[in-house]
Amino acid sequence: MNIENNQEIKSRDDYLFDELEITGQGRRLVAVRKFIDKMAEESGFNETDKFDIKVAVGEACANAIEHGSPRGKRDKVRITFIFEADYAIIEVIDEGVFKPRFPSFDSQLNYRGRGIPFMLALMDEVEIKERKGGTTVKLIKKKN
């Protein structure tokens, strides 16, 4: 699915769902954030929730692009969105090997590897599933 198209968000009675596909380019994250804004807005999430979702999904996508795309632009990162009345579920699905990176505790000036702590702090649930041929990061945010 091409995210350049101003596609209509699909809806099934009481929830919105859709998916995007991006290649290994950081620039596409702008489009992902715009998409989250649009879906979250339509589902009645407040500005703080929207910001939290955008940061967490952005971190998951950046990880997927950096580590989950061993063949570069040939690899796709798929992002699925479900926005229900009370919560949002976003899955970031890549084609590479997951490399967990946590900041070390010896120095706060070690600034790599903050992506996962961000996801854990901003979302209500974070699940990282490794499967053959890729990794799926599932993020759940309850509406505040």
Partner: peptide
């Protein structure tokens, strides 16, 4: 309007 860990990383790098 938006900042993620890569932005923080650059600020920390600058501070060093």
């Amino acid at each position: 309007a938006f900042m993620d860990s890569s932005g923080l990383g650059v600020l920390v790098g600058g501070l060093k």
